[in-house]
């Protein structure tokens, strides 16, 4: 028989104990029902508490099951919860960037848009909540493919359709884009999905650092990129890249994104992530 790990067995026993009848137990109750020295029981409880599986009542000092267990059972983040957490930050991103903001999650081989803030110029715009975007060519999709393993395998195994001259379709090249995305922490799409449009996106993570979605801005390529040369807009040759961090590679070459937009998108993603981290049941 394979060896088992005693402390894990004991931890499981503590959880079962707390899940049974009484639900709130003091340290000595737990130690005595498990026939363990108090010090050992306390060590187990402290570790479980750190992981969020056990909580200690401030007033009585008694232990009970923690919120993290609930979250394990329903491990996905409700997308409407995500939207309500992101609302204020997404509004602020739209105002500071002057562009429209999209928030997407991985869903059925693609990106599902769960929140959309209009470009703040009061022009007629249509709400795109509920729309799907491709994984391999959009900034939101690349972020999800880079950080979420399930999205990654979908993007790798699925068809990578060519939408424009600049769409990356080859597998090795696509993996390079994702690797670059992981390294710098954000992704871009410069006319790889829609002619004339560019996007920047960054990952939203929950308190366990799991990627739960992506947020980004989309706007005219002339506004989102630095000194867009006619060549790029026309889908032709590359421009000179001056920096490493804000350069993105499309099939047709490298383009520099506006650093201030990149910073604003990443700030927004971090702010939403922070909000999710503070989330309690």
């Amino acid at each position: 028989m394979a060896r088992t790990i005693q402390s894990l067995e004991r931890a499981a026993a503590v959880l079962r104990l707390l899940a049974g009848g009484e639900r709130r137990l003091g340290l000595s109750d737990i130690a005595s029902s498990m026939e363990l020295p108090k010090g050992t029981a306390h060590g187990l409880l402290r570790t479980l508490q750190q992981e969020g599986f056990v909580e200690q009542d401030g007033a009585t000092g008694k232990y009970q099951l923690g919120a993290e267990l609930l979250r394990l059972g329903t491990s996905y983040l409700d997308v409407h919860e995500l939207r309500s957490r992101a609302l204020v930050w997404a509004d602020d991103l739209a105002r500071s960037s002057g562009e429209s903001v999209y928030l997407g999650v991985f869903h059925l081989q693609g990106v599902l848009i769960v929140h959309h803030v209009f470009r703040p110029d009061n022009s007629r715009q249509v709400l795109e909540v509920g729309a799907m975007q491709p994984l391999h060519s959009t900034a939101l999709g690349k972020v999800l493919s880079a950080f979420d393993p399930v999205a990654h395998s979908e993007a790798v195994d699925g068809e990578r359709k060519r939408f424009t001259e600049r769409t990356v379709t080859g597998l090795a090249e696509f993996e390079d884009v994702l690797e670059a995305t992981r390294t710098r922490g954000w992704a871009a799409d410069v006319e790889e999905t829609w002619e004339g449009l560019a996007s920047i996106a960054a990952p939203i993570r929950d308190r366990r650092r799991m990627p739960v979605g992506a947020v980004g801005v989309t706007g005219a390529v002339e506004r989102v990129c630095e000194d867009v040369p006619v060549a790029v807009a026309a889908g032709a040759a590359a421009t000179t890249a001056t920096g490493v961090t804000n350069v993105t590679s499309g099939a047709a070459g490298d383009v520099e994104l506006r650093p201030m937009l990149v910073a604003a998108v990443r700030d927004c993603a971090r702010a939403v992530s922070r909000d999710l981290g503070a989330r309690r049941f």
Partner: peptide, 14 residues
């Protein structure tokens, strides 16, 4: 646009 750009150094900028 140029006006918003100057302020877009961060989400908390004003």
């Amino acid at each position: 646009m140029s006006e918003t750009e100057n302020r877009s150094t961060g989400a908390s900028s004003h």
